[in-house]
Design a protein around this nucleic acid. Structure first.
Lengths: 241, 241
DNA sequence: ATGTCAGTTTGATATATATCAAAAACCGTG
DNA sequence: CACGGTTTTTGATATATATCAAACTGACAT
């Protein structure tokens, strides 16, 4: 784990980016896309373990994940840490920092990443001229609020296996939305990191995986997951007691 | 619990509202304040138990609490519910709905409330002309994200008494920010509702209160709370094991 | 190939909180 | 002021998950 040092990359145009639908509103004209693109900062290359930013860092930009996987975590005073989320291609990171102008969490690469920098001041300025960009920004923040509240619900009212099923199905949907398989993928995070996100200990996560395996719901070998029964997983999310 | 039926009230001007610093940016001129005020919808009077909106309702406006106390809750398919937050005077409700144009939770009055309606389309339009309003809106959403992530951390990594201490201190701060006593207040919610928010059963909440009482940290009688030792409560938030 | 180390799995046991139950206190209402 | 219903408190017990511990696996470096 080391502090990230900037490695500016040549920009690649949003106009041809396969993630354009995630980062930009749908209804921008080509010239408007060019205006947005013009304000983007450098592309950053992160190695596994690098920090994109740290809690307390001054806020200047949002970040769009172009490739790779990251986690965001917050730390207690007493050292306990909680992973607030995992981000993949197309996700926007850093909106928690807008309020205080200071990042409220650490963002750490779980594998090598390419990250687009979106300087925030300029984004605000341009969004006053492009209503659909403004709307898009609002929707991104709102979606983050909804996601966080769903995690709250998960943590507050689900048991261990429900949480893990919910987690797997969320990953599955997000991979599918990006054109990857909804049923087969590699986990980029350890059992301990999954546990930290779901409010469980790593052993509990491991046991729940094994139990899903026995039940024929998934086929898992360390970090390779194959979801065999999506409906079954979904059902198991809603079985109280 | 009944569906809310509109009882439009005469508007009262933001310019003299004691909550102005919560709803509006600090640096608006009087004429700008008047422009914001002009787009506000009617004031709504809610009785205890009334819904301000329900999950699934079409989104049209944000709501600012003028007086009273509310809860927002989301429901599982299986009927379990989770209270995502409690809102008091000065708080803005409904930002979770911006993304999908549909409310993602129920908002229910815990006591009689007066609520200001802020039509969202007009707010977006005006915020393109008033950068400080735009900035304010962004900060409100960002603050909501941070708050939600702090609750996630609470649910994911704190034990029962830590959660409750954290909850009491949060209420305390929010009352203090509104000019009320930081150490003495009335709880507007039941033990069950506290539990639903904190991921605990009502009996556990009750026992934790009793334990704080025995320890001399608080003096509580049903819903009247007196925080006797804020430092002690704070310490107890960060004692793992 | 071999050794090392981190990550994972599995087992045995401990513990925090849930559950079940009953009494007590409180609140609105007639 | 008494009544009935709801909320709160407290106790006894059950249970899900944490904790402790050890073996196993896979990845990487030598």
């Amino acid at each position: 784990m080391q502090q990230y040092v900037a490695h500016p990359q040549p920009k690649s145009p949003c106009s041809t980016c396969h993630l354009r639908e995630f980062c930009l509103p749908q209804d921008l004209s080509e010239s408007e896309v060019a205006r947005v693109e013009a304000l983007f900062g450098p592309r950053h290359a992160l190695k596994r373990g690098d920090f994109l930013f740290r809690s307390g860092d001054r806020f200047a930009a949002l970040y769009a994940v172009h490739t790779g996987f990251l986690k965001t975590q917050i730390l207690h005073e007493d050292g306990r840490e909680h992973i607030t989320g995992f981000q993949m291609a197309g996700d926007i990171i850093g909106m928690d920092a807008i309020n205080s102008a200071t990042h409220a969490c650490d963002a750490i690469a779980l594998e090598d990443c390419d990250i687009c920098e979106l300087p925030y001041e300029q984004l605000e300025t341009l969004s006053r001229e492009l209503p659909s960009l403004q709307r898009h920004l609002h929707r991104l923040m709102s979606r983050e609020i909804v996601r966080d509240q769903q995690v709250m619900m998960l943590l507050g009212s689900m048991r261990a296996e429900e949480r893990l099923a919910s987690f797997l199905l969320d990953l599955s949907e997000r991979f599918a939305a990006r054109g990857y398989s909804a049923s087969q993928f590699q986990l980029r995070m350890s059992r301990e990191e999954i546990g930290s996100h779901l409010g469980l200990k790593l052993e509990t996560v491991s046991r729940a995986f094994s139990h899903f395996q026995e039940g024929g719901l998934i086929d898992i070998h360390v970090r390779s997951v194959h979801l065999l029964d999506l409906n079954g997983l979904h059902d198991c999310m809603h079985r109280p007691r």
